[in-house]
Nucleic acid binder design. Sequence first.
DNA 1: CTTTAATTATAACAACCGGTCTACTAGTAT
DNA 2: ATACTAGTAGACCGGTTGTTATAATTAAAG
Lengths: 189, 189
Amino acid sequence: MTDKKNAKDIIIKAASRLFRTRGYYGVGLNEILKESGTAKGSLYYYFPNGKEELAIAAIDYTKEFVADKIRRALEKFEEPIQAFQAHINDLSEEFGVHKEIFGLPIGTIAGETSLTSEPIRLACQSAFECWQLIYVEKLLASGYSEKHAKELGLLINAMLEGGILLCLTTKSREPLRIIAEQIPFLLKK
Amino acid sequence: MTDKKNAKDIIIKAASRLFRTRGYYGVGLNEILKESGTAKGSLYYYFPNGKEELAIAAIDYTKEFVADKIRRALEKFEEPIQAFQAHINDLSEEFGVHKEIFGLPIGTIAGETSLTSEPIRLACQSAFECWQLIYVEKLLASGYSEKHAKELGLLINAMLEGGILLCLTTKSREPLRIIAEQIPFLLKK
DNA sequence: CTTTAATTATAACAACCGGTCTACTAGTAT
DNA sequence: ATACTAGTAGACCGGTTGTTATAATTAAAG
């Protein structure tokens, strides 16, 4: 999680960005190397098992990165409704500003590999669980029941991945904004 | 090797299935040909512009195929809440039965290509719009306002794509079932 | 300095990619 | 029978893929 120090982190960061935006099979090793300014030797030194191992590291990095972003956004308001709206609007805003480097956090790679690579699938699952847990905790703190909180946490995860996908496909930030507006109806106790 | 139908449709069907489950870059032409039992000559005879043109045809096919499925499911109940729940539970059921051949309708390919192929992106956008329109019409028929219906239609689209993604990554049909249970809160007028 | 380990840089690898090309079959109309 | 055409089959191409092996470089330790 430290900044640009060793080559390993640089490679992970570049891979994370590229995998997120274009998927696992859509990005080649050469492109990752070019973007990160490193060479093949370094990649296979740090990731002896190649592309798959790198992808898992990239997903883990994205998991933590996104988790921090979620936490920071949810802290802004005590009330879940306002907090989640703030979070979603943050995403929408980010998409509006620099749409090129914005991808489904891990949706694309998750869909591509769910049937072809069990290790990557598990890494994606872990990320989704991590984010959901943050949502759940926020809801529990406001008195939602354990069951209800878990259901809503899952739903928010699904809505966000789907919403980001729609933003990408329509090249507009409207989908996420509309989703944010529906949050109050959803979180009504 | 001409089966009951012409080769073009066979290729489109095979491509549709493979693209849906593993994405655009995750599937090679040779695999599509092997699966469809045709040869390269036929493919480039019907799709002179190659893989991209085939992908668009496959997406259009998926669009109509899924649209029919949605219409059939929504017809079962007049009340939107029950109708949408039936639709989502259908999907969940289908995933439980044969999870291998179940993919995000087009989520994966949409994410992969939104930044790399404008024609494919537009085909995906058209599919999403088509499905949303069906949702909207169902809601309008029950007295929802135009604005509210459109918002909910988009939300349902996002929830479904996200929910299917979560089903794939967790190898469980629970996500879609949980989403179905939340529908009543969402559609409350 | 010398020696040794850690890291990086290339070159080469088979396998496969999407795409092109030509030969071939089968059916139809003349 | 002949000529024409729609459609099929598959070998082949240049380029790229992920991976491996090895050489060159740097850093650390004695």
